[in-house]
Amino acid sequence: MVGIVIVSHSQKIAEGARELALQMAPSAKIASAGGMKNGDIGTDVEKIFAGIKEVKSDEGVVILVDLGSAVMSSEMAIEMISDNENIILVDSPLVEGAIFSAVEASIGSPLAKVVEVLKGAKNYKKF
């Protein structure tokens, strides 16, 4: 199953988005990598690296980010993994993306399909 890593400056946002997505898709493999080790606001390359390792399989991983340093820190974490060609950082809204990708991954969709759904989440109309 495609793994999902949620990166936010806030530990609570990352954990909350994970919790919400798991409610929709309890079998999804989701790691939250929010905040610093001590819970401070920020992004931590080591934490993201550990998150990727936690959910990584041959089927690939998608990474969702909030903004700013979350992007650069995630890129660095990806570079630290040797076989990283199927670890994809996706430009997607964080909460919607977490839910959509969890559902898509849990029904066994391949990486390309999960990425496509995530990209589509950007244009999702709430009402």
């Binding site: 400056h9 610093m36 080790k37 401070d40 606001i41 920020g42 992004t43 931590d44 390359v45 080591e46 934490k47 700013g68 340093s69 650069m72 820190s73 890129e75 660095m76």
Partner: peptide
């Protein structure tokens, strides 16, 4: 730096 700074300066100075 990349695991303790927290902001954009972490990956930038770290790299």
């Amino acid at each position: 730096l990349v695991s303790t700074v927290g902001g954009a300066s972490g990956p930038l100075y770290g790299t």
